[in-house]
Amino acid sequence: MSFQFDSLTAFYTMGGHGPFVWLSYLFTLMVLVWLVASPLLRARRLRAALARRRPGAGHHRSAEEKES
């Protein structure tokens, strides 16, 4: 197993197929990053909103949890 291209330029251009190959990988990367990031961001937003809520407000929480 060896590197298939003579130079980095050859690696970029891929014998003329470069734009298609790199665009495919870039698009896939973007979608995959979005897939991972969106639930993480959503969870973070939800957690932040919950943490901002006044402790005990509307819930059966007592005062000793306040300091957390």
Partner: peptide
Amino acid sequence: LNIRAEILHRERGSHWVVELARSR
């Protein structure tokens, strides 16, 4: 990750989720 985010959303009123949010 999607399931966990959805759980947080649906269980946002429950004790353990509030607890979790504060501890984090």
